[in-house]
């Protein structure tokens, strides 16, 4: 996973609440292996709709944008990590929103995408910002937790654990394997404490 520290990039506004993961990638595109690339399916159906703000993604002004700005409860719904694959493969490294679905946020971090949490008012202000709408780049400073737009800046929130992971590009599995001894000791005492917890494969009486 590539570490993320400071990001200078264009930010595409998506002035919608409750953008669920079914919108981020409709289920019918999830049969393919990741290697095929998921970027083309990002917000697929919304981008077909002439009236949808998601059309901005296809405008020249936002070519190469790496930051997405949305309203509340972004990424709610299905646990499909493919929603993050679609964002990441499209080129996004950061989503700014006033709320995130829990599973989505965790999936995002595991793929090096920063879920930057701001207040509802701040999200509205960013969505309405003229310079952003014209494609001027903004700066995401992860160590300082700031978003810099022109000459003013706002703070964002991120879980400290996720912050460390993003800054270092860490992978959980390697870390967990280092706890093998503790896991084995847990198993020994747990087998005594909760003997019923195993599936019983003997035939029913």
């Amino acid at each position: 996973m590539t570490p993320l520290i400071v990001l200078d990039a264009k930010a595409c506004p998506l002035p919608l609440d409750n953008v669920d993961t079914d919108q981020l990638i409709p289920a019918r595109f999830m049969k393919r292996p990741r290697g095929d690339g998921y970027g083309q399916f990002l917000l697929h159906d919304l981008r077909q709709d002439a009236a949808s703000p998601a059309r901005l993604l296809d405008q020249d002004a936002f070519k190469g944008c790496e930051i997405l700005i949305a309203g509340r409860n972004f990424g709610c719904g299905s646990s499909r990590e493919a929603a993050v694959y679609a964002l990441a493969d499209f080129g996004f490294r950061c989503v700014i929103a006033s709320g995130f679905g829990d599973i989505f946020a965790s999936n995002a971090v595991k793929n090096g995408v920063l879920p930057a949490l701001v207040s509802a008012e701040q999200a509205e202000a960013l969505l309405a910002d003229d310079s952003i709408r014209q494609g001027a780049p903004i700066r995401i400073d992860l160590p300082g937790q700031h978003i810099r737009i022109g000459n003013h800046s706002i703070d964002f929130a991120i879980d400290p654990v996720w912050k460390t992971q993003l800054l270092n590009g860490w992978d959980d599995i390697d870390m967990t394997v280092s706890y093998a001894g503790a896991i084995a000791r847990f198993n020994q005492s747990d087998a005594l404490a909760r003997p019923w917890a195993q599936p019983d494969r003997s035939p029913a009486q």
């Binding site: 646990s79 599973i103 595991k110 959980d172 967990t176």
Partner: peptide, 20 residues
């Protein structure tokens, strides 16, 4: 609770999961 694919892989390999 529901988890994403990277967490599924983690559980497959370790039968554990990191949570807050």
């Amino acid at each position: 609770f529901g988890i994403g694919a990277s967490e599924v892989a983690h559980v497959m390999m370790t039968q554990t999961i990191w949570q807050k």
